[in-house]
Design a protein around this nucleic acid. Structure first.
Lengths: 215, 215
DNA sequence: GAATTAATTGAACGTTCGTTTTATTATTAT
DNA sequence: ATAATAATAAAACGAACGTTCAATTAATTC
């Protein structure tokens, strides 16, 4: 046999990407064989090389597009207003929504960095650092305007990102909590963590803890 | 050649463990070959099989002992007093100290779970869950005594653990921050996150944010 | 409808993998 | 000293790996 009836390069490539994300997330990059991936797509291993020159190229492509997607999502979600609390809220909401929606791809991007060449690792880390810098900027502006109270913005940014990204480790759609509930809780925890003063939304009815934003 | 002068089973086994933790942390379990590990120890690959029947046995041993170490460390650090704030502080301090001290082993235990058999995965996850339950208990007690204000103790426990464990991703000893500084910052962030009321330590000098514990 | 291009198969390549077996030497106990 | 045991080396095993190549068929273009 050779070319199969109904075969379409674009569809095959998309199927390869999808299957690769799922398989790498489940088995790990090193543990997934090209034959396994091909079988998942319903094709022979050799066919994969029409779309990706090497296994590492495939991994890199998945990671790069994931990071680009994250960056673009934040570009869209970023509020025009300068209010630090609103901006931080938007960052948290976007981060959680994106990571829950693309749990598998996030897993791949976070866990398989060591399988990249030095050059490509640098490239991905640069994109990640740029994204994280956005959060540091929001935090710093909040400190300057007095909206937040933070010891160390760099450290706090890392702590927040680890906390938020960690959602994908335990969150499973359709279980006890909805995405909206999880997001609300994380937003609330974030605002307390940065010592946000009340500057938007309704005031907390509770008698205590007057300095945290009610959400 | 065969047995080498000065060879000692106990020392070799210890060297294998040490080298394995370091290599797996750096390359990943699948990417590390038994020959590579043997070379690091200064021995032939066949010699490894005197100490660990299979590669997976080696991985499992490393993980199990890491989890046992974490559990025992908390047993020792757990304060006798029932004060929730003090207990939470002890949990955070122990967690961060342990994870920074054993960064590589933590990396292995967190990243290579998928290389375990189903049975052994269950065993490790059971130990992890038991350790995490300790934190949930501390949080719940704090809520009951009114020391903490938390929406969802389960979710908050996961968020805190992700945040704290995340330290190993970016922390490098001897860089900008000392372990003590990092621990102090994380303690402060944790107490704000759980809405801790002042119940120990000195009051915060700052005029604002009267509800967070000063550390 | 013939020529060209796109998509895929099937077989094979050399390499590396985890692991086993057997032989050999160092150490310890008698 | 000699026997027993512990620790390793050296070589080999079959299997699986990523990748390449030539052949073959489907779809498209002219």
């Amino acid at each position: 046999m050779a070319r199969t009836t109904g075969s379409d390069g674009e569809k095959t490539e998309a199927a390869v990407r999808e299957a690769a994300v799922s398989l790498i997330a489940r088995l790990g990059y090193e543990a997934m064989s090209m034959r396994q991936l091909a079988a998942e797509v319903g094709v022979q291993a050799a066919a994969l090389y029409r779309y990706f020159p090497t296994k590492e190229d495939l991994l890199f492509t998945l990671m790069r597009e994931h990071m680009e997607g994250l960056s673009k999502a934040w570009d869209k979600a970023r509020p025009a207003a300068a209010d630090p609390v609103a901006r931080l809220a938007a960052y948290v909401e976007n981060h959680i929504a994106f990571h829950i929606a693309r749990r598998h791809a996030t897993h791949v991007s976070n866990m398989e960095l060591r399988s990249l060449s030095h050059e490509r690792l640098t490239q991905i880390l640069k994109m990640r650092t740029a994204y994280e810098k956005e959060l540091r900027t929001v935090l710093r502006e909040g400190v300057e305007t007095g909206a937040f109270e933070i010891d160390d913005t760099g450290l706090t940014a890392m702590a927040l990102i680890q906390m938020m990204t960690g959602v994908i480790v335990w969150f499973r759609p359709g279980e006890r909590l909805s995405i909206a509930e999880v997001t609300a809780s994380y937003l609330s925890m974030t605002m307390r963590l940065v010592g946000a003063t009340i500057s938007h939304g309704t005031a907390r009815p509770s008698g205590r803890a007057g300095n945290a934003v009610a959400l």
